[in-house]
Design a protein around this nucleic acid. Sequence first.
DNA 1: AATTTGCCCAACCGCAGACTC
DNA 2: GGAGTCTGCGGTTGGGCAAAT
Length: 198
Amino acid sequence: MPMAPTRSQYSKREANRGAWTSEEDQKLAQAIEIHGPRRWKLVAAKAGLNRCGKSCRLRWLNYLRPNIKRGNISDQEEDLILRLHKLLGNRWSLIAGRLPGRTDNEIKNYWNSHLSKKIKQKENQNKSPKQDQSQDLRNSAIAMHSVAGNTEETSKRDEEMKIDFSRDEFLESFNEGPLNLEWMSRFLEMDESWFPFA
DNA sequence: AATTTGCCCAACCGCAGACTC
DNA sequence: GGAGTCTGCGGTTGGGCAAAT
């Protein structure tokens, strides 16, 4: 029985795969400028790239898109990722939505290569009593706000934050089916004006 | 110097839901 | 309403590189 072609074998006879060249990037950027970052199949065709729409979309979102932040994840960003992951699990796109300039792929990679290990280590050495989850939520909101660009001291805000997150209410809202996700999306998309310290 | 190992990250794949006709 | 297509998401893979042996 013949073996299935490997990925590299496919790449020789079908669409381009693998790393993008700067020439391809340029063509894609030009096509998007004309047709917009939608209709990816069309964009791929118009760009004259032997790539599928999906591949073009990914390249745009993770690399070519304006305002992409490159370089190391800051401590503040890391803290926010940890907190959001605690709330949301592997909802990388939602998490990325709260980190300006970061992509879901980048955060997912960062999580898999750095944070998941850190957490395991922490879990192993830290068998201390669980933190009050309402405090966690308050901290999450504070971290979200500060990463969004506010320069006030978080400790001060923490003191000023008067909203009383009810742990039980919050946790209950996660156990009620599809509405929960909607609720969480709204929680994460909330305008900064929601925050009392804004 | 050559080889092995481990890590990082860009890119691919499969699936589900949204959209269009 | 249903079929076909497109889009977006999360999981996974594999190439490239540096450190270790």
